[in-house]
């Protein structure tokens, strides 16, 4: 919004020795409005039709009394929203954040650990990099059923294993205990998503120049310190993106919760996503569901604004750094 000049790149074109700099400038005139417009067009069409229109329509519902099954709608102003902000809102938000943050953090930690391991060189690494992707490729709905099958309190394999190891003496109803049920959900969701975290982070790790690590090691930096001083700055950008997207997706996530706990016990694992579903498809109340959706969107929006601001700032400094490096490289030739 702030920068309004059209020219390729963030930094000024490299000055060139011959007169072609002029021609370059003239060339950039071709790349204005219409070029940008057609670049953006297909994506915008899709976003407008598939997301924006339904989104606006649902947000409008938030201000109306509207049912899924009865025709017609009545304007009610902020009633639905005030209602959604009632007593149940704080626990619902808390529960949503527990699941979302828990799943995001766990899958990030596992993905990062795995990426660090698979970035080492050892025999069979290639096969393992592929094999670890399988949990991500099992259809999501099957993942939910698989974990329900594992955690089941009456004949689940988890109880079977623990009992055979004599860690417990009778089967435990994991999904009937608030903390255990929350843990189970986080584990099941993270199992499904840590492989893609691994892929992204592994890619980030590969941008870390080996020389930097060696230099730091020679300076006597331990592996933990090396991780934070050498590795982290290079993967920070990609880590930010995957964490943000994973957070948004987990906030949105429905299947695992619906299948595994159905929001129980006693509604303590209910999240925005399952609550909206219940309200819209069991209570047929589109108005209330829309109000919940509106609040949910406002919350996530704050996060996205923070992220974009942060990443744009990071981008500027990174670009500067990169051009420096490019210059250096040029010199060494």
């Amino acid at each position: 919004m702030t920068t309004t000049d059209v020219r390729p790149g963030v930094h000024p074109p490299q000055p060139t020795a011959d007169s072609s700099g002029d021609r370059g400038n003239r060339g950039s005139r071709l790349s204005d409005k219409s070029f940008i417009f057609f670049l953006l067009l297909p994506g915008l069409v899709l976003l407008l039709a598939i997301v924006l229109y339904p989104l606006v329509r649902s947000l409008v519902s938030a201000f109306f009394k509207e049912s899924l099954i009865y025709p017609g709608m009545t304007f009610v102003g902020f009633d639905n929203i005030l209602d959604a902000l009632g007593d149940d809102f704080a626990p619902l938000l808390g529960q949503t954040l527990i699941f979302t943050i828990g799943s995001t953090v766990l899958s990030f930690v596992l993905g990062m650990a795995l990426a660090l391991v698979l970035n080492q060189s050892f025999r069979g690494r290639g096969v393992l990099r592929g094999a670890f992707l399988i949990p991500w490729l099992v259809p999501g709905v099957v993942v939910s059923f698989l974990w329900m099958w594992i955690f089941d309190g009456n004949y689940g394999v988890l109880n079977g294993v623990l009992q055979q190891l004599h860690l417990i003496d009778h089967p435990i109803a994991w999904l009937f205990n608030t903390d255990a049920a929350r843990g189970a959900l986080i584990i099941a969701k993270s199992w499904n998503s840590f492989p893609w975290m691994m892929v992204m982070l592994l890619a980030g790790l590969q941008t870390v120049p080996v020389e930097l690590h060696e230099a730091a090691a020679m300076d006597g930096a331990g592996s933990i310190r090396r991780f934070f001083t050498v590795t982290w700055p290079h993967v920070r950008g990609i880590a930010g993106l995957v964490v943000l997207l994973e957070f948004i997706w987990n906030f949105q996530h429905f299947d695992t919760i619906f299948v595994l706990t159905g929001g129980g016990p006693a509604g303590t694992t209910q999240t925005f996503a399952t609550e909206v579903y219940d309200t819209a498809f069991k209570g047929y109340d589109l108005g209330h569901a829309g109000a919940l959706g509106l609040l949910w969107m406002v919350l996530l929006m704050i996060l996205v604004v923070v992220y974009v601001t942060f990443s744009e700032r990071g981008e500027k400094s990174a670009t500067a750094e990169k051009s420096e490096r490019a210059v250096k490289k040029e010199k060494t030739r």
């Binding site: 989104l55 996503a273 909206v276 579903y277 819209a280 569901a289 949910w296 969107m297």
Partner: peptide, 15 residues
């Protein structure tokens, strides 16, 4: 673009 996945999909689906 980033926020296009931030609304409950169950509701988007209805419309």
């Amino acid at each position: 673009v980033l926020s296009s996945q931030m609304f409950p999909q169950a509701l988007l689906l209805v419309t």
